[in-house]
């Protein structure tokens, strides 16, 4: 049997829907982890079933709570709008027009305190599982089911080798690795899933590798 008992019993979550509530919260929480920086405004573009049935399933509260860092089993999700107001966080929901995406998709835009903004698109694919499909216009494929490293680098030889060598030195086994680039010799994206938690020290060391532009660790 290759299905875990804990895929049958679980997730532990806030009701009523694993895709429209728990998945929505996780999606926004992973997005927040990717953004890293403090933000004062976050907007959510709802598409498909998220837009149509979201109100009945608490999708909005779940997304907002996730963006604020709350886990999908946190009972404060229900009253998150009050908490957001107390913290002075502004938020907005709108209906998104998208093409060829999953039925439960959200476009989450974070407006950071340093003036930058980041736009993340992702979907809730059922059973509380999620997939981040786009980061600032770059296609990506992040499920955050295992600890994940997200690296942006200059598309030059040797970067990937240096990263994987460093991970081996740190005792981190690579489970999945995907590299994609905008165009040859320019920017490239690397998503690495590992078998163990990715510590802050590993991130600092990867940042020092030549041609690495940014590094983020997602330990969910």
């Amino acid at each position: 049997m290759n299905i875990s008992l804990f895929d049958v019993l679980g997730p532990v979550m806030i009701g009523p829907s694993s895709s429209h509530t728990a998945g929505a919260a996780k999606l926004a929480r992973v997005a927040r982890t990717i953004v890293e920086k403090p933000f004062h405004l976050v907007t959510f573009g709802l598409y498909g079933s998220f837009a149509k049935t979201g109100v009945g399933h608490g999708t909005r509260q779940a997304l907002l709570a996730g963006a604020m860092g709350f886990k999908e089993d946190d009972e404060r999700i229900k009253t998150i709008e009050t908490l957001a107001k107390q913290e002075g966080l502004e938020y907005e929901f709108y209906e998104a027009e998208l093409d060829g995406v999953h039925e439960n998709t959200a476009v989450i835009t974070f407006y950071c305190d340093d003036g930058s903004k980041m736009r993340i698109i992702g979907c809730s694919i059922g059973g509380g599982r999620i997939r981040i499909t786009e980061l600032d216009g770059l296609a990506s494929d992040i499920t955050a089911e295992s600890p994940t490293l997200l690296i942006t680098q200059n598309d030059k030889p040797g970067v990937i080798g240096a990263v994987s060598g460093l991970l081996a030195e740190c005792g981190l086994n690579i489970a999945v690795m995907r590299v994609s680039r905008v165009s040859r010799g320019e920017l490239a994206n690397c998503v690495i899933e590992t078998d163990g938690r990715i510590g802050a020290e590993v991130v600092r060391q990867i940042e020092k590798i030549p041609n690495v532009r940014s590094v983020r660790a997602i330990n969910i």
Binding site: L9, I14, P16, S17, G127
Partner: peptide, 16 residues
């Protein structure tokens, strides 16, 4: 009722 009210549950096998 807890599930419908956005309370905490454990899906077994689903939330519903």
């Amino acid at each position: 009722e807890v599930n419908a009210s956005m309370g905490r549950i454990c899906a077994a096998p689903t939330a519903g």
